[in-house]
Nucleic acid binder design. Structure first.
Ligand SMILES: [Mn+2]
Ligand SMILES: [Mn+2]
Ligand SMILES: [Mn+2]
Ligand SMILES: [Mn+2]
Lengths: 217, 217
DNA sequence: TAAATTTTTTAGACAAGACTAAAAATATTT
DNA sequence: AAATATTTTTAGTCTTGTCTAAAAAATTTA
C-alpha cells in the first residue's frame, strides 16, 4: 500500500529527475512539493524502505523500477481525470489541475482502465502532456518550442509547458487553444517577442509566453 | 474544512439517527464505522467543537443543521459517483460501493454539480437509494417491502435495503435487478418464503431475501 | 435499592506526516 | 588548503486519528 503522501513524493521525484532515473536533491523536492527539506528526508527514507526509491545519504534520490511504475500510474490517473473533467464535465483547462490532484489518489485499477476506455483512450491531457499507458510508457513528445519553428512556417499548438492558472487564463483571454494552427510571422530582435498568425488574426506574444508554447509541425 | 475522517463520522451519525436528527450512541457509531468507542468519543468532541454535532456527555450525539447538510453532501457525492460507475463505466452494482467510498471525499462543489448534470440528474443510485439535492433534500422513498404487497399484485423492484456484496451477488445470480416487474404469487406459512414471478419465470425467495426487497406499486 | 453489568469517558501511548532548530556533511570562495 | 556558505540530516516537538486499559457513569438485574 502506497499512501497519498508517498504518491505525491513519487510524482515529484519522477518529474524532477527524468522519470525518476536521475538523482534529485532534497531541496528540489521540498520546493516542488511546498514542504521542508527535513520532511523530505523523512519521506525518502520511507520510500527507500518500501523499495520505491534508491537513496544514498547526501546524494539525492532516484526511483526504482517499482517506484517509477507507481509514479507513472499516478500521473496516468491525473491526466485521464483531467481529460474527463474537460471533455465530459465541461471544465476549462485552467480549472482541472487541483481536482485531478485529488482524483489521482483514488485506488482501483479497474476504475482507471474503464475511464480510459470511456474517454476512448486519449493520448494527451488537456495541456498536451502525454498519458502513460498501463505499463507506464508513453511516446515521447514530438512537439518543438515555437522559437525552433522557422519564420513563415506553420504548426499546431499541441503542448503548453507551464500549466499555471495565470498562463492558461492568458491563453484563454487571447483565444489560443490546443489544436490551433499557428504561423510564425516575425521575431523582434530587441525583446525576442514573436508575431504569430492564427485564425486569421495577428498576435504579438512575449518571450515569456513563447517559451511555453510547443507546436507539432 | 471537514476532514475525510470527520466526513465518515458525519455519514454514520446521519444514517444511524434518522438523518442525524435523533441522538445515537457511541457504541453504535463505533460498530458502524469499525472503530472503538474511545475513538468515537474523541471524534464527536471535535465535531461538536466545529458546530457540526450536538453532544452531551453520556447522552449520545445528533447533528446540527450544518452537520446534516455536510453529511447529505457526502451522501450525494457517494450516490452520484455510484451512478457514474454503473451507467458510464460499466461497473456492476456490487462493485461500486468501495470506490464511491473514496470518491465521496473529493472536494469541489462544481465537480458534484457538473457530474449531476452529466448523469442527467438521477434521483436514485444503483441500489435504489435516493440522491440528495444541493440542499440535502430528497423525496422520501415510496417503495414498500415485498411482504406488504398483496398476493397476486405486481410491483417494480426499486430498492434493495441490504447492499452488501453477498446479497447483490445473490440477486445477480438469480437475475433480479432494479426495475424488474415482480408479481407476488404465494407465501409459505412455515418459513415465510415467497414465490414470485418475474420475466416469465417463477422463483422462490427466502424470508431473509424478501426482507431486503422493496417494490413500488 | 443494592449489586452486577454495560456503556461511555478518560488517560496514556503510538504511527504518520509535518515542522523548527541545531548539527553534520558537502560545496564554494578566498 | 582554509574559511565560508549551502545543503542535508538529525533531534525533538506537534497534530490527527487511532488504540488499549482503567475509571466513571448509567442501566439492568436481583
Ligand atoms: Mn495529489
Ligand atoms: Mn495536466
Ligand atoms: Mn454505496
Ligand atoms: Mn468514506
Amino acid at each position: 500500500m502506497i499512501t497519498l503522501s508517498e504518491e505525491n513524493y513519487l510524482k515529484a521525484i519522477y518529474h524532477l529527475g527524468k522519470q525518476g532515473t536521475v538523482a534529485v536533491s532534497t531541496n528540489a523536492i521540498a520546493e516542488k512539493i511546498q514542504s521542508k527539506a527535513s520532511s523530505v528526508t523523512d519521506m525518502i527514507k520511507k520510500l527507500a524502505d518500501k523499495n520505491l526509491a534508491n537513496y544514498i545519504k547526501y546524494q539525492g534520490v532516484s526511483l526504482t523500477k517499482k517506484g517509477r511504475l507507481a509514479a507513472a500510474l499516478v500521473i496516468r490517473k491525473h491526466r485521464l481525470w483531467e481529460v474527463f473533467l474537460v471533455n465530459k464535465l465541461d471544465f476549462s483547462w485552467d480549472e482541472v489541475h487541483e481536482i485531478a490532484e485529488q482524483l489521482e489518489h483514488i485506488k482501483s485499477l479497474k476504475l482507471v482502465n474503464q475511464l480510459d476506455a470511456f474517454l476512448e483512450y486519449p493520448t494527451h491531457d488537456p495541456h498536451g502532456d502525454p498519458i502513460p499507458d498501463k505499463d507506464g510508457n508513453y511516446s515521447p513528445i514530438k512537439s518543438v518550442n515555437i522559437f525552433e519553428v522557422e519564420i513563415g512556417k506553420v504548426g499546431v499548438l499541441s503542448f503548453v509547458k507551464n500549466a499555471t492558472d495565470a498562463f492558461l487564463k492568458y491563453l484563454n483571454k487571447n483565444k489560443l487553444a490546443l489544436g490551433d494552427t499557428i504561423k510564425v510571422i516575425e521575431q523582434e530582435p530587441f525583446d525576442s517577442s514573436l508575431t504569430i498568425e492564427t485564425n486569421n488574426r495577428k498576435l504579438v506574444i512575449s518571450k515569456e509566453v513563447a517559451q511555453n508554447l510547443y507546436l507539432t509541425l
